[in-house]
Nucleic acid binder design. Structure first.
Length: 391
DNA sequence: TCTGGGGTCCTAGGACCC
DNA sequence: TCTGGGGTCCTAGGACCC
């Protein structure tokens, strides 16, 4: 007999803001907004504490709007390194409850709890214990969803927040999904929701009543199947699926739109440094370089080029990025955002034919790797290309 | 309100080969 | 001379998520 599946989805409540309140106890109980300082142009809210949410402040909101809604809030740009460390601490706790932890982002993870009942106890009791342990060791609260499918556990963790615990018993998945408003569908954003509504479907039940093939005709084959499964609690999502090829990118929004070519190239160089640094640290490689341009009016374009050879050095990436940029850029238009990335990134592990480049390139790569390792170890020593210091 | 930065996945079309 | 169908690789853009 197959074991009944049990999944937890665990979500840290207002994560960045909560870490800030822990580090600054005098901020507890006050509206804390992470993302930028008042006066920062073009910043957005990354996380708002629950006290700040009471003012209507939420993630992705322009910071200037947040300042208007909550002028007496405590504003901070945040400290990613600290959040990363705290996240690792929490994830480590999770691994003691399940050998199968699927981390989705810095602040959430799925745990496959199937078959752990005999050892650990009833799922709901285990979830309570997990919540207590995270709070005791880190001072942070989490919201947990417990269900027989990953999809429903994810929706359930958001059902009651903060510090929530929601259990959906086996067999109740459809009932649970059908009790929720359409906006709770995870994987359907604004565009899809308005598409669904304009097709005359107002509730989960309206979708539920349609056949899969009809939904496919209405919304495309992939989205149709997704909707069909989602309102049923999505039995299709599989634990631990790994993407083989990933991507790696760095982008930046300028305080003021750029037209000056030297300024633009300086930004490109900085982005290239960042990307190569992380490429070396992750020990991976790629042959495809992508650049992204967002103009002042927010129209966004991208262009890419795949070459026969992997990217090696900052200079190498910079030359490729610059060439692609020059082809794509509509000269004279103000640039709001610039991005540089690598796609089809693969692990370097199994790479054997190492001498695709000549010795000069090889030496340069070695030097850069050494510099990046130095940067990694001693964050106070920053070794930069001369160009990016000319600012 | 005036819209960050890091990603993933999907679609649709073109080039090329057999 | 006109032209099928499948497979693979690549590109650009869009939707979505945290």
């Amino acid at each position: 007999m197959a074991l009944e599946k049990v999944y937890f989805h665990v979500d840290l409540d207002a994560f960045f803001a909560s870490v800030e309140q822990k580090v600054h106890p005098e901020w507890k109980g006050k509206p804390v907004i992470v993302g930028g300082l008042p006066g920062d142009r073009r910043a957005v809210v990354s996380t708002a504490s629950y006290e700040a949410r009471a003012y209507g402040v939420h993630s992705a909101m322009p910071l200037v709007t947040a300042v208007k809604l909550c002028p007496n809030g405590i504003y901070t740009r945040g400290n990613m390194r600290l959040y990363q460390e705290t996240s690792e601490q929490v994830m480590e706790i999770f691994t003691r409850y399940s050998p199968e932890v699927l981390q989705m982002s810095v602040d959430e993870a799925f745990l496959d709890m199937t078959g752990t009942e005999r050892l650990l106890g009833k799922p709901v009791d285990v979830a309570k214990k997990l919540k207590a342990e995270v709070f005791e060791k880190t001072g942070l609260t989490v919201s947990v969803g417990v269900a027989g499918t990953m999809y429903v556990s994810k929706i359930a963790s958001g059902y009651k927040k903060p510090d929530g615990l929601t259990f959906v018993p086996h067999g109740d998945e459809e009932k649970f999904m059908l009790s929720l408003p359409l906006e709770k569908l995870w994987g359907a954003g604004d565009k899809t929701l308005s598409h669904i509504r304009s097709a005359g479907l107002k509730t989960m039940a309206d979708i539920y009543e349609k056949s899969e093939s009809l939904l496919q005709v209405m919304f495309g084959s992939s989205m149709g199947t997704f909707l069909y499964e989602a309102v049923r609690g999505n039995k299709g999502m599989i634990f631990g699926e790994e993407a083989k090829n990933h991507s790696l990118s760095s982008e930046t929004t300028c305080d003021f739109d750029l037209t000056d070519i030297f300024a633009i190239e300086t930004v490109l160089m900085e982005l290239c440094e960042n990307v190569i640094f992380r490429m070396h640290r992750q020990n991976c490689r790629s042959r495809t370089v992508v650049i992204k341009i967002r103009y002042g009016d927010f129209t966004t374009v991208s262009a890419r080029e795949t070459s026969e050879w992997s990217v090696n050095t900052v200079d190498d990436l910079f030359e490729r990025a610059k060439r692609i940029f020059e082809k794509k850029y509509e000269s004279g238009r103000g640039i709001r955002l610039l991005g540089v990335g690598l796609s089809n990134v693969e692990s370097k592990e199994e790479m054997t034919q190492g001498s695709l480049f000549d010795f000069g390139e090889e030496k340069k790569t070695k030097v850069e790797e050494a510099v990046f390792k130095l940067n990694d170890k001693h964050s106070e020593i920053i070794v930069h290309k001369a160009r990016t210091l000319l600012k």
